[in-house]
Structures are given as C-alpha cells and as structure tokens.
Design a protein around this nucleic acid. Sequence first.
DNA 1: TATCCTTACGGAATTCGTAAGCATG
DNA 2: CATGCTTACGAATTCCGTAAGGATA
Lengths: 311, 311
Amino acid sequence: MNFQQLRSVREAVRLGFNLTEVAQALHTSQPGVSRQIRELEDELGVEIFVRAGKRLTGLTPPGAAVLPIVERLLQDADNLRRAGADYAQQGHGPLAIAATHSQARYALPPAVRDFRASHPDVQLQLHQGSPKQVAQMLLDGEADLGIATEALAQYPDLVALPCYRWTHAVLVPPGHALLDGQALTLKRLAAFPLITYDAGYTGRTHIDEAFAREDLSPALALTAMDADVIKTYVELGLGVGIVASIAYDEERDRGLRALDARHLFAVNMTRLALKRGAYLRGYVYDFIESFAPTLTRGVVQRALEGGAVED
Amino acid sequence: MNFQQLRSVREAVRLGFNLTEVAQALHTSQPGVSRQIRELEDELGVEIFVRAGKRLTGLTPPGAAVLPIVERLLQDADNLRRAGADYAQQGHGPLAIAATHSQARYALPPAVRDFRASHPDVQLQLHQGSPKQVAQMLLDGEADLGIATEALAQYPDLVALPCYRWTHAVLVPPGHALLDGQALTLKRLAAFPLITYDAGYTGRTHIDEAFAREDLSPALALTAMDADVIKTYVELGLGVGIVASIAYDEERDRGLRALDARHLFAVNMTRLALKRGAYLRGYVYDFIESFAPTLTRGVVQRALEGGAVED
DNA sequence: TATCCTTACGGAATTCGTAAGCATG
DNA sequence: CATGCTTACGAATTCCGTAAGGATA
C-alpha cells in the first residue's frame, strides 16, 4: 500500500472514472495509474471499481466502503506536510482564502491589511466564488478557510463558525512612484507587489508569459477573480494592480457615499468555514482571530474536533 | 512520504527511541530505520527527534505535533486493510478479544459458543490481562474489542460501552474420540481443534515447535492465558485442551455449586471497549450484539463516531 | 569498552514509461 | 473508427542490507 495508489483511486472517483484523465492529473502515464489501482485492489483482496468490459463505470460496494478511508489517509498526509511546514518556516507560507465577492470586497480588507502587516512573509491568495464554490474549494483542499453568508453550514465535512451579522446598505461615494512620467516597463512593474487575476482568469496567462519571457518573477501580493476586488486593494496601497482596461471607470473610482439600508433587508450571518479534520498552520489561526475576534485559537480547535458553535 | 517511514517514527517513540530495537520490530536493518526517519524529517523540513550527539532521546516540539497525525495515518492504513478483508472474505478472518480473567471465565462463554456456531470461519483469539492491559491491547491494535469491569472508561482514545451489571456469588459446583485407548500422537491431536496457551505463555513455544517438526498445523480454536479458561472451553466441547499437568485437579474439575452473594458486594458494571476510529469488520458487530443485545450495530457505530452512551 | 547512530557502497528488487493488444460505444 | 483499459517488456531508478566510521555513556 502506498500513497500513489491511494491518489490514483481518489482521482479516479473525482474525475468520473476516466483513468486517462487521472494520469494527466497525476503527471504520470495511464498504464501506471491502471497498475496502481489494480495493485491496491489485489492487496485489499477487493474490487474497488465496477468494470464494464475494460471501462471503469463506478464504485463497487467495497469500493464505497473503502473510499472514505482513502480520503482520510490522503488528507492526513496533507496535514502532515502542513504541520511540518508550519514549524519549518514559522509565519512563512501560503494562506488561501475562499470568499464570495461581497466578503472579499467589503468585509475582508481590514483583516487582510492587518494580517499582511503582521505576517509579511505569508503568501495570501484570495479565491472568489459562489458560496457553493467556496465550500467546494474547502472540500478539495484548494482553500484553507472560506467565508460566505450562505450555504456553508450545510456541509457535514465542513465546520462553519459564525463571524458577524450584517445588514445591507445602498452606496452612492495619488502619488505612486510609477507616476513619475518615465516609460513603464515590465522590469519596473516587477519591482512592486502586483495585484491581478487568479491563474486561469482574464488574461492572467498572458501576464505570466510576459514576465517569464523577460525572466522576471514579480511578487504577487494578491490574486482575485474580479476587478472590483483588485481595485479595492490597490486603493489600500497593497500593490500595483493589473486589470482589463474596460474595468476602469474614471467617474466611479473617485469617491463614494453610503446609505444605510438595514430597514430594507433582513439581517445576515456571515460564517467562516474550515474543512473538518484539517491541520491549520499557526498563522491561519492568527488570520481568523483578526477577522473575527471571538474566534480564538481555542474556540476554533474545539470546533474542529467535533463540537458545534452557537450563532 | 511512505508508510515505512511513518512506521519507523511510530515504533521509535513506542520503543523508547532505540532504533536498534525498532529495526528488529520492523524486521529490517538498523541503518534502514535511521534513513527512513531522516528522509521523513527532510521531506517535512523538521527535526522530529531530539538528538544528543548520535543518540535519540526524545521528541522535538514539531515531532510532538506530527506524531498524532502519523498515528492516525497508520491506523487508517490498518482500517483500509480491514475493510478490504471484510468484503474479501465475509465472515472469515480473525477476531481478537481482550478480557479479564473473570469475564473470559464467566461472562463470555455463552456468547463465544453462539458466535462460533454462527461464524465457524472466524478465528477467535482470547487475550487475557488486567483491565489496564486490556486497554493497552486495544490501543496497540492487538485486540479488536476489550471487556472488563474497571478502567476502560478512563481512556480518551477508547470508546467504552456499558454491557451489563453483575453481583458476586460464592461458588461451591465425559466420551471423546481420543479416549478410545489407542496411543496418542501429534498427528491424532492435530485432527482436533486445539485449546492452549497464548503465544509466549507456559510452553506454547514448545507446543508449536513439536507440531512444526512434524509439519502439522493444527487448528487453534482458542488461545488463553490460564488453565481455568482453557478447561472451561474444553468442557464446552470446543476442542482439545493442552495445559500444564499441574493445572488438573481430579476432585475440583467434576461438578460445581453456586451461592448468591449480591448482598455482600457492590453492583459492578462491565464495559465493552473499542478503539476510537477503528474499522470493525462485520462479524465484530455480530459478536458484540450476541454478547450484549443492547449494543446493536447502529448503537456501536454512533458511539465510535463521537457520542457517549449512557450506562 | 560497549552501545548506538550515521555514512558509504554495491547489488537487487521495484517502478515506470513506451509500445502493442483488445474491447467497447 | 475513436476512445480507453490492459498486458508486455526493457531501462532507469530506488531501495535495502552489509560494512566501516564515529560519538557517547
């Protein structure tokens, strides 16, 4: 039994029982994957997959019994690596936050600003999506923590912690070094922390390629899914933004007015979600507490191990 | 990262940080163990063990953080194998019960008799010990379930389920084929299910060697720690016993009388314990239910996943 | 001096990828 | 006929055990 076999099984289920795709996802050959699975089945003495001729079509009953154990094993392998990295370079490493647009845009900025000040060596990644996508990113291990107002409390494999209540409002609201008049070059850009789209979004590929062609590897202060988020963090001075030109509105991006609207909409509860059984690196607890002061390390750890937390 | 590395770490902790002993326990070479540990430490980027010169003396803080994850991984690897074996040969496999003398002697026999009748292909093993030893056998994975009146409820890594209440009493209480007068030989003996001591007890080694020398591998219906238990099961007709000769008392081993003594002693609660997070094969649930009818599969599974069970 | 861990080296077993084979939709 | 899994084979890598080295109690 080894981890490559387990990975092959998990990916086969995730990718709809297509071993060719699994091979690509695991960066190996298709016969290799086929063998890994066969060998695990042999060792366990059980067929995990239903085979229609030479094609995999589903899980057998023993396969269904075995799958959750396989997933726990792989998650713990991941936890082990995280725990190691946590001690190896304290306060150094990645922190992936999944959030909805409105959270990323209006709730997170203060916490992010404070966190970046206190943890300058943590690579922040902001992944944006619908509440369901946020949940899925947590389940897939792509994000360390998720923040949304809807949906999060409904997943048994997630732990959802209440953060704060909020009501709706109606909104009616310069001197950077690059403004010195000189010609803008990739090299000058790369000297600053950049804020741009997530990998795979809105021309991010071309941005990466341009820097790579000149052997530049600029620091990415933040990556996000839409320009509105990016512009917010540029205004906060966290870095130089790169967005599609149509995203810029000379009129709108100057000042803002807000109108209270709590009498119009119901009160909402925003929740912070974590994957059950996940190992969280030390700075993750720091971020959580700076975002929602009631969620101290002790509270979060207790919740992760079982208990529910009252709204 | 691989399981051999994890095993090396776990055994190093268990065996007091002596890699020479670890190598023997894992049936490999000492430099091999040293390498496994070193490689895992390199991959995690963390020192797991404190080294005084070239000697291991204890766990580092990251080592202590990592150890519980390592143990969960190895337990799940074990669970995976069990789950596979469970489906591969339904109702076929080992069942190791740890119990105190009094449980094995007076409470278990009816359940064991019924279970052997309904599950003839399950290899029953009865391990006897003090309540604390019973708990340790469960924690070490040497026993699937433990039964005792004391101590079991105090271990956080065990789930203890109430079975039955009992009070004390004062006790005042033949035509096998081998009695045909012909000479007894190992070969004739080996034709019957045998009942004898646990491996490592009271001459069991010599018994094994004798059979091995004649290439006999008799079925062991039961193994136990003391003659009193063995004699009980021989009386039940479960097999042919092999015990030290001094254990036989011509007078005592005929009949018995019992005197109620519930007014003399306090009522006791016997508990059945399982290791938290363990995968139990189907027939284990069957045994539990036949021993304590209130402990149905559903009740046990719910308890294993978290909840407590009221006395 | 005895115990115990590390390093170095060589042989053996395993692993993996390529290419060919075969079944299914 | 295209897609997708299995089998076969050869090369490369990895793995492991033996032997020697060095440090500590």
